[in-house]
Amino acid sequence: MAAVLHTGHGDIHLALRPDETPYTVDNFVGLSTGSRTWTDPVTGATGEGGFYDGTVFHRRVPGFVVQGGDRLGTGHGSAGYRIPDEIHPDRGFERPFQLAMANLGTDSTGSQFFITLASAPHLNGQYTIFGEVTDDRSKDVVGAIASAPTVVRLDRVTILAT
């Protein structure tokens, strides 16, 4: 399974790992397509459409990470629920460009995700890695987002069955 993050800086192609992290991938796909029920953190109403559409990468640290998935754009918003971690024993952050769910501690993942830009083994065992960036052009886009001087939007996410 694959996903494409469509941004103002270009597309980011991702390989997802439903075999290793089925609930996390299902959650990401459901939020991306609007098939999973979510709560708008601004209005408190049930959201419509893709949760990630029009959000921003609210955390951008060159050489380390880009983070998105918060409709508030502050790092404090969620989809109104939490899911359990699915930390795979054979996956770590020894390589860059890993896609993982952000959290506030054990079993507190919801909608926020991040992509690493460098090796970050100090994150091992703390976050569900559910995919990775697949090609050099996409890696360049992630790097450009991290160093962008202005806000970068995630226009939409396309899910591709493989």
Rank of each mutant, 00 (worst) to 15 (best):
M1W: 09
M1E: 12
L5A: 09
H6P: 06
H9I: 10
H9C: 09
I12G: 07
I12H: 06
L14R: 04
A15I: 05
A15T: 08
A15E: 04
P18K: 00
P18S: 02
E20G: 01
T24G: 06
D26G: 04
N27M: 02
T33R: 04
G34V: 10
W38C: 02
T39S: 12
D40Q: 05
D40M: 05
P41H: 04
G47L: 04
G54A: 08
T55M: 15
V56L: 13
V56W: 05
F57M: 12
R59M: 08
R60G: 05
R60Y: 05
V61M: 14
G63F: 14
G63P: 12
G63M: 14
F64L: 15
V65Q: 10
V65A: 13
Q67E: 07
L72D: 03
G73V: 03
S78I: 07
R82S: 15
I83S: 15
P84F: 03
D90H: 05
E94T: 02
E94S: 01
F97T: 00
Q98T: 06
M101P: 00
M101V: 01
N103H: 04
N103I: 02
T106D: 07
S108N: 00
S108Q: 01
T109M: 05
Q112G: 05
I115T: 15
T116E: 09
A118R: 00
S119N: 02
P121G: 01
L123Q: 09
G125Y: 07
G125W: 07
T128H: 03
T128F: 03
I129V: 11
V133T: 09
D135P: 01
R137Q: 13
R153N: 15
R153F: 14
I159Y: 12
A161K: 03
